[in-house]
Amino acid sequence: MEFILYLALILVFTKLAGDWSVRLGQPAVLGKLIIGIILGPAVLGWIDNNEFIHYMSEIGVILLMFIAGLETDLDELRKNWKSAFAVAIGGIVLPFCGGYGTGELFGLGHSYSLFMGVVFSATSVSISVQVLKEMNRLHSRERTTILGAAVVDDVLVVILLAVLMSFMGGGEQSSLGWIIGKKIIFFAVVILAGWGAVPVIMKFMSRLKVTEPLISAALIICFGFAYFADLMGMAAIIGSFAAGLAVSQTSFREKVEHKIEPIAYSVFVPVFFVSIGLHVSFEGLGQQIGFIVILTLTAVLSKLIGGAAGARMTGFNTRSSFAIGSGMVSRGEVALIIASTGLQAGLLLPAYFTSIVIVIIITTLVAPPLLKMMFRVPDSQLDRA
């Protein structure tokens, strides 16, 4: 019954740590991540990374990406698609090159360096949106562009991850034609199912005279898509993200989102964030200080400049462009999910996992003050810089 004690410890300490983090002006996920490091082998050693933790965290990350898909507003993207695409492309190309270049500079090897590029191409804008809300800019054009760019960013990074895991994920050896064929089959089936089958399933299940049929339907679709993705040689999170996108296009989106979050965030997601901390080890970290510093500078500047360049090319002034770039800097939970997935798939060296988690944390901490600063700087001062 040791697993029950583990679950109790995780729930108590993640909620307390999340609360303390929010009170200090930081995202709750930061506190949950840090408490995972403290409870794990790196500090106290109260919780082991056993099979129970593994399966619970797998469900947690699948639900987390399903919610990310649910929250992806494709209508928002259509309204401001040119700027959103330009910012997203700029915010992917430069970080990808920067992550890959840093990996090569420190001799990580080609496949590990490519994965580094994918990790730092990710964006988590939930923190940026909170900052914009505090500054009464929640309905500004900058906010719309940041959110639209994040949608494109998420979709493109998920595709990049799928491609990388297909060719370098250490799975079974298959012919190139079959690998590509499975990806085509996956996306074709997902698109067709999302357009045709998902609305029908949701409508049918909603009429059943049982407890919570709608949420059960959403979970069936989520886990079904995740399993199909795994069957096709892709990460399960790619399937669950696609499932969230499909459900988000139905009239049941708000009801599902309202009820699925308590299921995810009350039990499974806390276990996922703690499981990341359980992989952290401070052994040999002192020898990677240079790596952490260079990777942090690369991660922050590449997103800032890449996003700003995309915004500038689509008509934003200098200040707004850099404000949009600042809003894309935070990697947050999206990068943590990708890093954790890559570690399990053999695309990330365990010795560098802690360093990458630290860099992700730093980008998350840097984003809010950077965004506030950019909105306060006059255009004339930026033009002279």
Results as ranks from 00 to 15, higher is better:
365 L>I: 12
220 I>H: 09
146 I>F: 06
259 K>R: 14
73 D>W: 03
215 I>T: 14
267 V>R: 11
25 G>M: 05
144 T>Q: 13
266 S>R: 08
293 V>F: 12
90 G>V: 08
380 S>H: 05
349 L>G: 01
280 V>K: 07
377 V>C: 10
367 A>D: 05
153 D>C: 10
122 A>H: 01
111 S>L: 05
184 I>E: 13
84 A>F: 11
297 L>Q: 03
314 T>G: 01
161 L>W: 13
330 S>N: 03
272 F>W: 11
362 I>D: 10
90 G>I: 05
175 S>V: 03
383 D>Y: 01
30 L>G: 09
194 G>S: 05
115 F>P: 08
135 M>Y: 09
111 S>V: 06
321 S>F: 00
323 A>Q: 08
373 M>C: 01
286 G>N: 14
246 A>W: 06
342 G>S: 12
87 V>P: 06
68 A>C: 14
164 L>W: 12
132 L>A: 11
307 G>V: 01
262 P>V: 11
59 I>S: 08
46 W>E: 07
110 H>R: 03
178 W>H: 12
161 L>E: 09
254 E>I: 12
222 C>K: 06
305 I>G: 02
120 F>V: 06
362 I>T: 11
378 P>F: 07
298 T>I: 03
127 I>T: 14
126 S>W: 02
343 L>C: 14
310 G>P: 00
374 M>S: 04
27 P>K: 08
354 T>A: 15
150 A>S: 15
205 M>A: 15
308 A>T: 04
69 G>P: 10
8 A>M: 10
384 R>V: 01
366 V>E: 01
147 L>S: 10
264 A>G: 15
345 A>M: 12
332 G>E: 02
88 A>N: 04
311 A>F: 00
72 T>V: 05
300 V>H: 02
318 T>G: 00
45 G>E: 10
292 I>D: 07
340 S>A: 15
321 S>L: 06
198 V>Q: 10
362 I>E: 08
207 R>P: 02
21 S>W: 07
39 L>C: 08
15 K>N: 12
9 L>G: 04
218 A>R: 14
297 L>K: 00
338 I>S: 12
174 S>G: 03
227 Y>M: 13
